[in-house]
Every structure is written in C-alpha cells, then in structure tokens.
C-alpha cells in the first residue's frame, strides 16, 4: 500500500462534510480500513440523510479499487437493502488509479441522485422503482428518516405523545410506510 499517497488523501478528506458533501478518515493505524460519510443529495429522497460507508483498501490500492459498502441501511436500486453492497462501475472495472477515496465517494453520492434501475443490485428495490416511482420515493424517504437521520421523523411526535418509545414509533411508522393512523393501530394491537 502506498502510505505516502494515503496520508495525502487523509489530509484532503479532513475538510468538514458540509463543504463537499463527503468525508472519510482511517479507523485503523495501517490505513487499510476507513469510515466515510456522504450526505444525501438535495432534491432526492435521501436529502438530509448522512450515510456511513465502510471502506477497505487492499495492499494493491490504488491500482485496485477500494471495497466500499453502505453501513447505513438505504433503499436504492443499486445498493443491496440487506448487505449494503454497492453496484457502481468505477468501484469495479471502470476504476482508475488516478481516482481517490474522495472522488469515489463523490461518485457514490452521484449514484444516489441518478439510480440505474436497469442494472440493479437489489431486484426488489429496482422493481418498485420501475413499477411505482412514487411508492419507491416514499420508502426511500422513510428509510432515510429511519436510518440516516439523527433527529426524529416529522410524523413521529403524535406517537411519542401517546407514550411510545422513539424506537417503537419509528419501526411502526416504517412498517406502515409513513401512515400515522396505521402505525397507531399497529402499536395498539401490540403487533
């Protein structure tokens, strides 16, 4: 591994996330394991979310692409809703050693704004995207609220007022796809 280059990359990535929407820092001293964050692009169902990305570098980096996956759950046709695996060409055969962790993260962020449902990683999500874009957007937004935001969901307050915990309320809302009435019924029925 090219330690000199990685140290330079690390310095470049120390900027606050607000500046270019991505950030990353090594979590292991040998610089082989990093944790990155990307902000959901504005005007998308992911807006306002902060997504954690797990980054593993092989000893051949940068001649081999970094291995990236979502640690934060996300509803997107090109990301597995179960494992967080990302299907993005520059992380595979379109990788160039002149790309960096930063430019790769920016490309992942661009993927959030421009899904490619015809080349899916998660067939269920892609099917929903193609058959009902509105339904897809609603689910993606809920998942963003549930998993990628530190604060609470907009519609959660009535449920909290009823005495349910934040965890319970979020899960119920998620299952009811944001329908407060249905979530209440679900919680009251004890399911």
């Amino acid at each position: 591994m090219d330690l000199k280059r990685l140290k330079k990359e690390s310095v470049e990535l120390q900027e606050p996330i607000e500046k270019c929407g991505v950030t990353a820092s090594p979590i292991k001293e040998d610089l082989s394991h990093w944790k990155g964050y990307i902000l959901g692009p504005d005007d998308t169902a992911y807006a306002g979310g902060k997504f954690e990305i797990d980054i593993v570098l092989t000893s051949s980096y940068p001649f081999e692409p970094p291995k990236m996956k979502f640690n934060t759950k996300i509803w997107h046709p090109n990301v597995s809703s179960q494992t967080g695996a990302i299907c993005l060409d520059i992380l595979k055969k379109e990788w160039s050693p002149a790309l960096t962790i930063k430019t790769a993260l920016i490309s992942v962020q661009a993927l959030l704004a421009a899904p490619e449902p015809d080349d899916p990683q998660d067939a269920v999500v892609a099917q929903e995207y193609k058959s009902s874009i509105e339904k897809f957007k609603a689910t993606a937004k809920l998942w963003t609220e549930r998993y990628a935001k530190e604060g609470s969901m907009e519609s959660i307050q009535p449920l909290l007022d009823m005495g349910f915990s934040e965890e319970q309320a979020k899960d119920a809302l998620l299952e009811a796809r944001g329908d407060v009435q249905a979530a209440v019924e679900k919680l009251l029925s004890g399911a």
């Binding site: 060409d89 520059i90 379109e94 160039s96 050693p97 002149a98």
Partner: peptide, 16 residues
C-alpha cells in the same frame, strides 16, 4: 490494459 488516467464521460468519472 487501459491508461491509468480518468476522463469525464456524460458527467461521470470513468477510467481513460
């Protein structure tokens, strides 16, 4: 074997 550089194609980064 392609060049180690990168290009922009239709607004996306790609290897050269």
């Amino acid at each position: 074997i392609s060049c180690a550089g990168e290009t922009f194609v239709e607004g996306k980064r790609r290897r050269c």
